[in-house]
Design a protein around this nucleic acid. Structure first.
Lengths: 234, 234
DNA sequence: ATTAAGACTTAGTTTGTCCTAATTATTTCG
DNA sequence: CGAAATAATTAGGACAAACTAAGTCTTAAT
C-alpha cells in the first residue's frame, strides 16, 4: 500500500470521526461528507485500506469502519504533522489562528520526519496547537484533558477555555474578537431555555450571548487547572 | 489544464535545462533523464502542455521543447518557492545546505502565496538561496550575475564563489568541508593539462586539487564584486 | 410482515500519470 | 548515398482516485 495523500486523508478523517463518536465505527456517508467525496468513492477506498498489507482499517460492509492499530499509528502521525505545522505558522510565522488550518492541511502530507522534529524543537515540544487540540508525541501518545462544553458548564463557576473544536475561519475570527481563545478565563452567566443562547462573560469584558451550537464547540476545564498561553491575533 | 505537481515538475525541469543550454530547445531524452521517467511519458506530457489553454510550451516533435511566456512564469513561480524554502530551512530551521534540496523539492508544490510572502519577509527578501542560485521576485525577475566556472578562471587572480550548481548532498558536503561555499574568496593555483585536476586555494587554507567536473560546478565572480553571507554548516 | 426511505455497494467511466514494446524519424559515417 | 545507430513517437495498458447510475441491504413505520 502506497500510503498516498489520499490514504492519509481517509485515515485522518476516520480517526477524527471515531473520536467525535466515542469510538463508534464510522459510516461511509459521514466519511464521504467529511472528505467532500461521493460515498461510492469511500466504499472503494475502504476496501483497499482493509485489504492492504499491513491492514489499516477494520471494515464491515454496511456496518462501518474503524482503524486498525497500524491505521491509528499512521493517522496520529499525520495529526502530529498537522498540529505542529499549525503551531509553527501561528507562533513563528505570524499567522492568525483562523488561517493556519488550510495551510497545514496541505503541508501535513509533505514534511519529512526531520522537519517534524525541527518544528517540534523550535516550538519547545508543545502539547497543544493554537486551537487547544492536543499534539501527539512521536509514539502517538497524547494528553487529552477532561473537558466540558461551555453549553453545559454550570452557571457562575469560573472556567478556562481549553480547546475550540471546528476550524471554520469565520467562526474562529469571531471567537478571537470575543477573546474566547484557549487560556482565557470565562464565567457562564445563564442558559436561556428551549435551546436558546448561552450568556458568558470573558474576564474583564461585557458578557456576550452565544448560540447553543457555538457554545458546544468551546471546551472548558475548571479554573485553576494547568494554564496555557498562545498568540491568536493577526 | 490542472497545473498539477507533475506539470510543475516538467516546467521546472524544462526551465532549468533551457538555462543550462543557453536557451536551446530541450530534448525529450534529457527531460526524461532529468525527471527519472520514460521518454514516452515525456512525449505524452509535452503534447498535453502544448495544447493546454493557455499553452505552456512550444513543442515541435523531434525538435525539442521550449517554455512559452506562460510556462516560464509558472516555472519561475515554482523556482521561487523552492529557493525561498531552501533559504528558510537553512537560515531559520538550521538545516545544512546539503539537506535543503530534497525537502524543498516536495514542499515547493504545496505552499500558498501567503506563505511564500511570509517566508520572503522573514528572510528579508533574499536575492539568492544557500547555493547562490538567484531567487526570482514575484514578477519573475531575477538577478543573474556574470559568472565563470572555477575550471576556467585565470590563475592567481582572486575570485569570490558566487554559486554552486548541482544539488548532490555528498558533493555539497565535501565542498562545505573545503570551505567552497558562496561568499568565500578563492585563488586558482593552476590547471593540470589534459583535463587533469585544478588546484585552488581557499582564503587561509591549504590549496586543494579538484576534478575538472567538480571545478566546473563552482561559479566565480571577480573579488571585489558584491559580497554575500550565509550559513552552510550543520 | 411489508414496504418505502435512506444508506451502502457494485459496475462501469473518466482523468492523469506512468510504463513497455514496437515503429518511425533523424543523424552520422563508412 | 545508404545502413547503422540514436532519438522520438505511437500504441496499448496499468493503476489510483475520483465520478454517475443502478441496484442491494437495513431499518423502522405502518
Amino acid at each position: 500500500m502506497t500510503t498516498s495523500e489520499s490514504v492519509e486523508d481517509y485515515l485522518k478523517a476516520i480517526y477524527q470521526l471515531q473520536e467525535e463518536q466515542a469510538g463508534e465505527p464510522v459510516s461511509t456517508t459521514s466519511l464521504a461528507a467529511r472528505l467532500g467525496v461521493a460515498s461510492a468513492s469511500v466504499t472503494g477506498m475502504l476496501k483497499r485500506l482493509a485489504s492492504a498489507d499491513p491492514c489499516l482499517v477494520v471494515y464491515r460492509p454496511y456496518a462501518g469502519v474503524t482503524l486498525s492499530p497500524e491505521g491509528t499509528r499512521a493517522a496520529l502521525e499525520i495529526i502530529r504533522h498537522h498540529r505542529l505545522i499549525e503551531s509553527y505558522l501561528n507562533q513563528v510565522l505570524g499567522y492568525s489562528w483562523d488561517e493556519v488550518h488550510a495551510e497545514a492541511d496541505r503541508l501535513e502530507h509533505h514534511i519529512s520526519e526531520a522537519m517534524e522534529e525541527r518544528l517540534a524543537e523550535a516550538l519547545g515540544h508543545p502539547l497543544v496547537d493554537p486551537h487547544g487540540d492536543p499534539i501527539p508525541d512521536r509514539e502517538g501518545n497524547l494528553l487529552m484533558p477532561e473537558t466540558v462544553p461551555l453549553a453545559e458548564w454550570p452557571v457562575d463557576r469560573a472556567a478556562i477555555v481549553q480547546r475550540i473544536t471546528g476550524q471554520e475561519p469565520e467562526v474562529l475570527r469571531y471567537l478571537a474578537v470575543l477573546g474566547l481563545v484557549p487560556g482565557t478565563v470565562v464565567v457562564v452567566r445563564g442558559q436561556a431555555p428551549f435551546g436558546g443562547p448561552v450568556t458568558a462573560a470573558v474576564e474583564g469584558r461585557e458578557a456576550v450571548a452565544l448560540s447553543r451550537e457555538l457554545a458546544g464547540k468551546i471546551l472548558l476545564v475548571p479554573a485553576g487547572a494547568p494554564e496555557r498561553e498562545d498568540s491568536h491575533g493577526a
